[in-house]
């Protein structure tokens, strides 16, 4: 089962910031694969959602970009800026609170397995 894009839309920025918190630097394709791997294919980040988000994070100064040439093409590696590190903590805390609220709102119990 994969989750609907609507469900993921509001969390993508947090996912990217968290990935960059845990990994020193990453490029777009690597992020999509890492998310697939960590969620056992349940979350598949689309290119159409990921790259606009990375572009916005870069413009906001939350991520830094290093460029590497692979033959004729360019690979953009993203890493967190100092502002981005603080933002990542803030977004993660917000999302954790949100999930806790949803669990209590929907009366869900954590699944133990």
């Amino acid at each position: 089962m994969t989750y609907s894009p609507e469900l993921l839309k509001g969390t993508l920025k947090t996912i990217v910031l968290k990935l960059l918190t845990d990994n020193k630097r990453m490029y777009g394709y690597e992020m999509t694969q890492r998310v697939k791997e960590l969620t056992l294919d349940k979350i598949q980040i689309t290119e159409g959602a990921l790259y606009p988000t990375l572009h916005a994070l870069e413009a906001d100064g939350l991520v830094k970009v290093e460029i590497e040439y692979i033959g004729k093409r360019v690979r953009k590696y993203y890493s967190l800026s100092p502002t981005g590190k603080a933002k990542a903590k803030e977004k993660l805390k917000e999302l954790t609170n949100f999930v806790d609220t949803m669990i209590s709102l929907l009366d869900l119990k954590p699944k133990l397995d």
Partner: peptide
């Protein structure tokens, strides 16, 4: 690579950073 870049451009991707990311992907 030139073929892909030209196609991305033709399909409306003008921002250089986005082009690079999509091309690499």
């Amino acid at each position: 690579i030139d073929f892909i870049l030209a196609d991305l451009h033709r399909k409306g991707i003008q921002i250089e950073g986005l082009q690079s990311n999509l091309l690499d992907h």
